[in-house]
Amino acid sequence: MRIEQHPILGPLNNETVTFTFNGDVYEGRKGESIAAALLANEIRTLRYTAQKNEPRGIYCGIGHCYECRVMIGTKRSVRACITEVVEGMKIQSQGG
């Protein structure tokens, strides 16, 4: 999913970070959002809804809809779309 080559934007930053999502270890690029890092790892489903248990992922991309909310440590409802992934970050799906 990563756009390694781009005709206009040139080469990609190759600095990596390691993080976990629901306990599994993944690699992301330094400076990117949690949502981008997960999508690059082909992960689209970030959580399941409280009532109907439906899958949800990133939607608005600007921090308004809160669909992409995740837990980081004990911090609740962190928006994956506008929060930078950092080395060693422990990301968990959030119910509800």
Binding site: Y59, C60, H64, C65, Y66, R69, S77
Partner: peptide, 8 residues
């Protein structure tokens, strides 16, 4: 009534 408070 949810967390986005009707923004969407």
């Amino acid at each position: 009534m949810g967390i986005c408070q009707g923004r969407t």
